[in-house]
Design a protein around this nucleic acid. Structure first.
Length: 581
DNA sequence: GCCGTTTTCGGCCCGACTGTTTTCAGTCG
């Protein structure tokens, strides 16, 4: 009745409702934690329920297992219904307003009967809040601004846009003489697929703090200042993204950087590990735990590596800090050597002037050479894509001849001839097998009929995966395969099929459309499915967009050998040939 | 609510900022 996404949402909501009820904070955390766990599992939730193995998962006990089982089986649960009935639904909207937490939401409801954002807005405008103890005029103003901000920033920001702003702000800070070290932290450093806000950490002598904060808040990118203190400032940038600056002493810097990089889940585990050594860990330092039975001497930590070392761990790259197995790997010294941008030797999903691309084969080749690559692959649209000048079989032959001529002239560089072939609604492909056999590789993509139900959608894709000439499944429209709210299909099943048939998957890194789910990518890696980081480029500049995919690939623990475009030319040729063999 | 090669009971992460206080609670990250 409910899938894992829905179950996760319900558990999170139960946590919030418990907060509003002023319940035991650890009980609250148990629900929030469980929500995270369920969202992250790659096994089939139905299976776990049927086999009654939910309690094998760390963090899920008898109580939560019962609730989850009820939700999956019946679509509801006694505990959930009781909680939901105990408070008006509108409070769940109100609590999302920045500056309002469970205590004050509860108070507003009890004293002023405020049970919706609209009612709250009216109450602020008529200054009813200021009459309550603990509230004043300033708070009313802040809430009104919060309501407005929530409306504007409810959507999260994509990595490339946030990265661009972050670079500008970082540059403004780092060029100041008083700043010793500074770096972007937070989810941007962890390369999450979407970014909430930008965190910058800087080390600076105390006497210079005020001047640094002043420079920060007066940057041209800043549209308003939310908070400005001695060690912290928060601003809203002109593009609507929040940006935080934290100032610390230089000896505190590694701790601050680590702390503000997160994730929260990673930090919680770090602190637990510190406690076991008899230390307390915060954003400034280790300190000896008062009254601990066993205490170890605290080593000097000059950088993040030292902190991990102190806890008996090898360095954990920011992309892996999600408490999703990185501590185990780190203890065993088995942290993978993650993909680097410089590992990439080329890319394969590129459109030329033959279909809807803006640059010729020659121009694209020059751009790829300029990036230091060894190859690239053309993948123009197939014939049904009339809107994009999809290629007829005759045109395909013409293109092949041009590529052969080009390759004959090129030294130490190779252009591959592929296609982005449409998967039709019945799962068959837009070219006959005869035509497909003429390509070196085939990216099979969906551009039509996005409103199928999940089982039909899954069948359609798996049928395409089975086609002997398909090399990799692409995701052309952005809201597709590896994204959580994309094309209706059970991606786990599709990945299983790819593993069975030795096919690859495309991580489409087109920046304007990026929202790939790294958990699914990680699952693909575990299954041995190769990944190609492709830009879906329509011009020469677009080739560079692969760099946005590298961060997501790192989050999924991908190493150079897991990624097709990190292989040398010969290996790529072999892989393509093996698929049709 | 969860968890246990120190525990089946008693723990479970911590500091800064804000606005309203006259010493601090609530919120945030």
């Amino acid at each position: 009745m409910m899938d894992k996404k829905q179950v996760a949402a319900v558990l999170d909501q139960m946590g919030t409702l418990l907060e509003l009820q002023n319940a035991n904070p650890f009980r609250i955390r148990a629900f929030q934690n469980a929500s995270q766990i369920i969202e992250g599992i790659t096994e089939d939730l139905d299976d776990l329920v049927d086999r009654q193995t939910l309690t094998d998962i760390d963090g899920i006990g008898q109580g939560l297992a019962k609730i989850i089982t009820d939700l999956v089986k019946t679509g509801s649960s006694r505990e959930y219904e009781d909680l939901r009935k105990s408070l008006p639904a509108g409070l769940l909207d109100i609590i999302r307003i920045p500056g309002l937490g469970p205590k004050r939401v509860r108070l507003l409801y009890e004293k002023l009967k405020i049970d919706s954002v609209e009612a709250l807005k009216r109450a602020c405008e008529t200054h009813q809040l200021a009459e309550l103890t603990g509230f004043g005029e300033k708070t009313e103003q802040n809430i009104l601004r919060g309501i407005e901000r929530l409306r504007k920033t409810s959507e999260k920001h994509l990595v490339p846009r946030a990265a661009e702003s972050a670079e500008k702000m970082l540059k403004a800070i780092s060029r100041l003489k008083a700043v010793k070290r500074c770096e972007v932290a937070g989810s941007l450093r962890r390369r999450k697929e979407v970014i909430g806000d930008i965190d910058i950490v800087a080390s600076v002598e105390e006497k210079h703090r005020a001047s640094i904060v002043k420079v920060f808040v007066s940057q041209p990118e800043v549209s308003s200042v939310v908070a400005q203190g001695e060690t912290k400032a928060t601003v809203v940038l002109t593009n609507g993204i929040n940006c935080d600056l934290r100032l610390v002493r230089d000896n505190e810097y590694p701790f601050a950087l680590n702390y503000f990089t997160g994730s929260k889940e990673h930090n919680v585990e770090m602190r637990s590990l510190a406690r076991r050594k008899g230390w307390s860990l915060n954003e400034y330092s280790f300190s000896l735990l008062k009254g601990a039975k066993k205490q170890s001497r605290i080593p000097v930590c000059r950088n993040e590596e030292d902190i991990y070392k102190a806890l008996g761990l090898s360095y954990v790259p920011p992309e892996l800090r999600e408490n999703m197995g990185e501590f185990d790997a780190s203890r065993k010294g088995a942290v993978p050597k993650l993909l680097e941008e410089k590992n990439l030797r080329g890319t394969f999903h590129v459109h030329s002037t033959y279909s809807d691309g803006a640059n010729s084969l020659e121009e694209l080749t020059k751009a790829a050479q300029k990036l230091g690559w060894d190859y690239w692959g053309v993948a123009d649209h197939s014939q049904i894509a009339v809107y994009a000048q999809g290629l007829s079989p005759e045109k395909v032959n013409e293109q092949r001849r041009e590529i052969e001529n080009l390759n004959a002239r090129l030294k130490n560089f190779r252009v591959f001839h592929g296609t982005e072939c449409d998967i039709l609604s019945d799962g068959t492909l837009d070219y006959s097998n005869d035509v497909l056999a003429g390509f070196e590789y085939v990216v099979a993509s969906i551009h039509s009929k996005f409103n199928m139900n999940e089982s039909e959608g899954t069948k359609r894709l798996i049928k395409a995966v089975r086609n002997k000439y398909v090399t990799m499944i692409g995701h052309p429209t952005g809201r597709v395969l590896l994204s959580r709210d994309g094309y209706p299909c059970d991606m786990v099943q599709v990945i299983d099929a790819m593993a069975d048939y030795g096919k690859a998957i495309e991580l489409n890194a087109h920046p304007s459309r990026l929202d790939p789910d790294w958990r699914l990518l990680k699952y693909a890696k575990e299954k041995g499915v190769k990944v190609f980081i492709n830009p879906d480029a329509h011009n020469a500049d677009g080739l560079r967009d692969v760099r946005y995919g590298v961060g997501v690939a790192r989050k999924a623990w991908l190493e150079a050998r897991d990624v097709g475009n990190a292989w040398p030319t010969r290996e790529v040729e072999k892989f393509f040939a093996a698929i049709r063999a």
